[in-house]
């Protein structure tokens, strides 16, 4: 019973944080609101007994990536007067909701049709570093390997876009 309440609480927080991200005007407020989403997602992973993902979510996403984002926002030193005037903002938000709403409704209806199985108790190893590692290096070896290419592309791309201008 407690897990159900926890689930709904965390899910609500996650959605509210995401809403804040798009509604707050100042980027710093948006970033702080996004932290709420990331942390409540970590909580949801913990409820699913995915220990490793829970830790990674907190350390990498809520920790490292968020501090980079906040660092960049502070580095640019955005003041209230730097923000663009956006009088039609609510109009766009409403338009977005009208477009995305039916899709969300469809997806909610679909997830209702999924069989409601009782909570399965996994053995102690589920979601631990060892189990995830074994799965990753046996069944999911190919995605694991090609992610390295993806990271390399991202790295080189970032260097190209942020590097010196106009070589040769």
């Amino acid at each position: 019973m407690l897990t159900t309440y926890l689930f709904f609480g965390l899910a609500l927080l996650a959605v509210l944080g995401a809403l804040g991200l798009i509604i707050f005007k100042h980027p710093m407020n948006g970033a702080m609101s996004f932290v709420v989403t990331l942390i409540s997602l970590a909580g949801l992973y913990a409820l699913l007994s995915a220990k490793l993902i829970f830790a990674i979510q907190l350390i990498v996403y809520a920790g490292a990536i968020m501090s980079l984002i906040v660092f960049i926002i502070m580095f640019l030193n955005i003041q209230e007067k730097d923000l663009p005037l956006d009088p039609n903002r609510w109009f766009y938000v409403a338009g977005g909701i009208i477009v995305v709403g039916p899709i969300a409704g469809l997806l909610i209806n679909i997830s209702r049709t999924l069989p409601a199985t009782e909570v399965t108790v996994f053995d102690d190893g589920f979601g631990s570093v060892k189990e995830v590692g074994q799965l990753l290096f046996t069944q999911w070896l190919l995605p694991f390997e090609i992610v390295s290419i993806l990271l390399l592309v991202a790295l080189v791309g970032a260097v190209v876009l942020a590097g010196k201008r106009g070589v040769n």
Binding site: W140, L142, P143, I146, V147, I149, L150, V153, A154, V156, G157, V160, L161, R165, G166
Partner: peptide
């Protein structure tokens, strides 16, 4: 496999984004 497709899609897209924007001026 869908996850492999997704990673491949992103490898392609990231490289293309960089190619488009290589002239930042």
């Amino acid at each position: 496999e869908l996850i492999t497709v997704f990673i491949a899609l992103e490898i392609m897209s990231l490289a293309i984004y960089t190619l488009i924007a290589s002239d930042r001026r």
